[in-house]
Every structure is written in C-alpha cells, then in structure tokens.
Simulated scan of single mutants.
Amino acid sequence: MPDFGAKAQIVQFPKFLDERGNLSVVESQKHVPFRFRRCYWIYDVPGGELRGSHAFKNQHEVIVALSGSFDAVIHDGVEEKRYSLSRSYYGLYLPPMHYRTLDNFSTNSLALVISSTPYEEDDYIWEREDFCRIKSAWTPTPLQYAPDTEGNKAPDLAAVKAATIDDCSLLTLPRHSERSGSLTSLENSREIPFDVKRIFYLYDIPGGENRGGHAHKECHQMLVAASGAFDVKVSDGKNEKIYRLDRPYYGLHVPPGVWAEELNFSSGSICLVLTSHEFDESDYWRKYSDYLAFKRG
C-alpha cells in the first residue's frame, strides 16, 4: 500500500486493459488506507457546475472521475491547491481536515466518492472560515490499520448450491436530486445487504460488447449502470433471467452461487460493481461447465 500521510495526494489504481473494456479496482486498506463505510456517486451535473464545499473532522475519502472531468480545489489550512481529475484509474485521497470544493465539471461527468465513515452531519464543516479556525488548533491522529477480525470463513457450499435466480434482487437506491446534479449514496449493510470491501468499474466499453460470465462461491455483488445501460443475464443452472440496468440509482444484487454475465453495453457505459470480498481467484467459477458440475453434483 502507498505511504499515506496527512496530506492530499493523487493515487493511481490498477488498470487492466481488455479489448472488451478496461477495468480498475479499489480495495479497502490496500489501494486506500481506510475501510469502506460509505460510497456515493454524483451524476447529471450541468457543465461548469460546482459541488461539495466542505471539510470533514474525521472522515477520509477518495474521489474518482469515472467519466468526464472536474477539478478538486483543496485547502489544507495554509495553502490552496487545484487537482484536475480526468482519468478513471486515478483518485484523489483526502485525509480529514481538508476543505474541498469540486468545480469545473464537464458535461456528463460522473464522480465516485468512497468514504471511511457513515454519513454524520456533525462531522461536516461547511464554512471555510470555520474550517480555518478549527484547523489552526487541530492535531492529526495517525491512521491505524484495522485488521480484518472476521477472518477467512469457509463458504456455505450447501447454501451456494441452493441459490437460485430468485435470490437476485433489483433494488431502487437512494437518489438525492437538485439543480446542481444528483447523488446516490450507499452505506454498508444499510442500503445494500453486505459490507463493501472492493469496488471495481468497467469503462471504455465498445457499444454492444459483452462482459462478465462467472459466479462466486462466497462473494456478493451489487451491479450498477453508473452511466449508460447494459443487461445482466443471471442463471442458476436451471433457469435464466435478464435484468436491464439503465439508471444510476438501480442496483442488482447477485448473491454467491448465481452465474452472471453483462451483455449489450451501450456506448459510453460504466459498470460499477461493489463486492463483499477482496479479490480471490479461488472464489470464482469462470467456466460455466465447472459451475454446472457443482450445482448439479
């Protein structure tokens, strides 16, 4: 993991190239120095708009331009610096007590923000003057690595084998709309039925392309068409169903034991995926024949 201090900094995330569309990933306490507690995405922002002028007393966050571009103007209590965000595989890490404003949005921009704490109004500092006054007497607390106390539990293979397409669910996610754009926010085990440990997203996807084609033994997934539209075909080895995702406030929960494949991407689509586990190749079925052998065995 990079050496994160108490300063704002640009972080580069892994970028996996594929002719069917590229993929970048952010894992909790691996690519950023905190556990995920909340994430939200900002969309439908008019070109040139300004969003989010505030600081946090305790919250760490990372901000990513999933599409389009915008600037983050950061004040650390001493000086101001402007960061231009325009690549899906770069993020701006902000520790607590940095006053930030997002501005200069290009048309059709999409911002992803991952946070270390649930929403708490008392954690916000809205006025810049208040921030400067509080920051002058503030002492940073070193960020402590929090080990995973859950450990690695063996998957419940009986439940995985019994999973069907009826265990998938299309959820309408919270949508907060205003003139300066819309925001959809998710908190762990609140709007979604699991804690998020990994977030990845597919982008630069050619129109009409297909992706995916796998199942998990333990990992839950939430799929969102953060931009554009695509279909998700789910199968349990006996039955199939196709869901159409075409709104950034719809999420499809796919539990372990259900095969999923993304189809018919529209041009410019972005597939945002939230998962309950970090990447583990042994958790995948990548061949449908192996998946069927397990389900029918």
Rank of each mutant, 00 (worst) to 15 (best):
P2Y: 11
G5S: 05
G5I: 00
A6P: 01
K7W: 12
K7I: 04
Q9W: 04
I10N: 08
Q12S: 11
Q12D: 07
D18H: 10
E19V: 12
R20G: 03
V26S: 01
V26D: 00
Q29W: 08
K30S: 05
W41Y: 15
V45S: 02
E49R: 11
R51D: 01
S53L: 08
A55Y: 05
N58A: 05
V62C: 11
I63K: 03
A65H: 00
A65G: 14
G77R: 02
V78H: 10
E79Q: 12
Y83L: 03
S86Q: 13
S88A: 15
Y90C: 04
Y90Q: 11
Y90N: 07
P95I: 02
P96V: 00
M97D: 04
L102S: 09
D103G: 00
N108E: 12
S109D: 05
L110M: 02
L112A: 00
S116A: 09
S116C: 05
T117L: 11
T117V: 02
E121K: 05
E121P: 07
D122R: 05
E129Q: 10
R133I: 13
S136K: 05
A146E: 14
P147G: 01
T149P: 01
G151F: 13
N152L: 14
P155C: 01
D156T: 08
A158N: 13
K161D: 03
A163W: 13
T164M: 04
C168I: 00
L173K: 10
E178D: 15
R179T: 13
R179G: 08
L183E: 01
T184V: 12
S185Q: 14
S189I: 15
R190L: 12
P193W: 01
D195A: 14
L202F: 08
Q221H: 12
V224T: 05
S227D: 14
G228Q: 08
A229N: 04
G237Y: 01
E240S: 03
I242R: 04
Y243R: 02
Y243F: 14
P248H: 08
L252T: 13
P255E: 06
P255K: 01
P256Y: 10
G257L: 00
V258R: 05
V258A: 07
A260P: 03
A260H: 15
A260T: 06
E261Y: 10
E261M: 12
L263Y: 15
N264K: 11
F265C: 08
G268E: 04
S269A: 15
L272M: 14
L272C: 02
V273S: 05
D280G: 03
Y284Q: 03
Y291I: 06
F294K: 10
R296T: 13
